[in-house]
Design a protein around this nucleic acid. Structure first.
Lengths: 222, 222
DNA sequence: TGTAGTGTGTGCCTTATATCACAAGCGCAA
DNA sequence: TTGCGCTTGTGATATAAGGCACACACTACA
């Protein structure tokens, strides 16, 4: 949460970075990767901004929370900035995750090919259903819910992915927290609760659609 | 976007409701459904707030954008408020959606059982791969990308769900917009662009994880 | 009819976030 | 070496969102 900047004259070290800013960093990493792939050496906040549809000032300010990465008159070195942002986000290493709930959704998550290339490895799965426990799904062995704590500890799992029915989700989250995970990716349609030192991110396509329709309602159909 | 309130003495009709507020409404609908199921007749903003971990004042203020639904000293009638919010969000009807990209992710989306009960029906699918075009997936026929426009018009499709690789996503989104959809649910990891009258919602679990690790980094492991 | 208890709706204030705008730094060209 | 064009980093300012606190409305009960 804290960073050690040499770049500031404010009261103290350890400036708190707003969540909104942290959530934008992966976006920057992604467009930088694009420029990197195209062999571009330098980019300006202007260029980044036009790609991302945001103002250059916002990008500069976001970056300024973490240091001074740019050169006046030149912009940012693509490679260096990408590298630095990955370090800041903790993307310069890989992370172990476990999945709870090996139903239809859970299986789709296990076989989703987007996690591994970014350094997120699902190394373990859990389910309540005795018919599934003990089987292998896509190379991952499925254990009983009661095994969460020992397995999380043994495999150094930092992230729990929750794909169980709504009714069971909070209970599962509590177990994951107790087992020591630091973050939870929750696919269940509930308002999940966890202690402040555990980060929860919700993925809820249905809720996205349900707010979208508010805008569809008033549209004149083409 | 506009509402016709009798409840206000402000400058004009048609108050613009902030996006953040609209995005919270489905949350309210969900907890109200819970109270409804338990047979509760009245709830206070206090009770709603404690379920959702938010302040009662925020809930009251959010609701006040749309009308005066509560009774002093009593709270809100659960059924009536749920009904009204559903109307406001356009959830008192069903919506047709189409899926573009029938790969692994696309198939998982088609067979995801969470959409239909909430009134979102995937009625059509499209893919680029000639091997898939013409087949049926989970009861949905797969057409060529070039068919998007006629099919969207014929089946009155308001929502496009994008599950194609990043490189193809913007092109697909452009086609969907041109075909006349009003909203897009985008699973591709890109910064999508669309005209202002088309609502885009992104679902990106990887990006969620990538910002989560920022907080995991600094955690003392248990 | 009166009074006590409760919870809404909202004006006003606080906090958070975004944008502006400019001094200062850098590189290039003459 | 000087000067010009460009782009950063950041105070200052503007806008947006959140929360407080209270007048007022409603119910219940005496």
């Amino acid at each position: 949460m804290a960073i050690s900047p040499t770049h500031t004259n404010r009261t103290a070290d350890s400036i708190i970075v707003p969540d909104v800013v942290v959530e934008r960093l992966p976006l920057y990493v992604r467009v930088l990767a694009g420029f990197e792939a195209r062999g571009t050496e330098m980019v300006s906040s202007e260029q980044l901004g036009s790609q991302l549809h945001m103002t250059p000032a916002q990008i500069r300010k976001d970056l300024s929370y973490f240091g001074r990465f740019g050169k006046q008159g030149r912009g940012y070195n693509v490679q260096a900035l990408a590298l630095r942002l990955r370090e800041i986000l903790g993307l310069d290493r890989s992370w172990n995750a476990c999945l709870v709930g090996v139903g239809r959704l859970g299986r789709a998550i296990i076989s989703y090919p987007g996690f591994a290339p970014e350094g997120f490895n699902i190394v373990s799965a859990f389910d309540m259903n005795p018919a599934v426990v003990g089987t292998m799904v896509d190379g991952i062995s499925v254990d009983a819910i009661s095994e969460i704590k020992p397995v999380v500890e043994r495999l150094d799992i930092a992230i729990g992915i929750v794909a169980v029915p709504a009714a069971a989700a909070q209970e599962v989250i509590d177990r994951l927290v107790e087992a020591g995970v630091g973050g939870i990716l929750n696919y269940a349609p509930i308002t999940a609760h966890a202690p402040g030192n555990v980060k929860i991110k919700n993925i809820d396509p249905v809720m996205s659609l349900q707010s979208m329709t508010y805008y569809l309602k008033t549209r004149i159909q083409a």
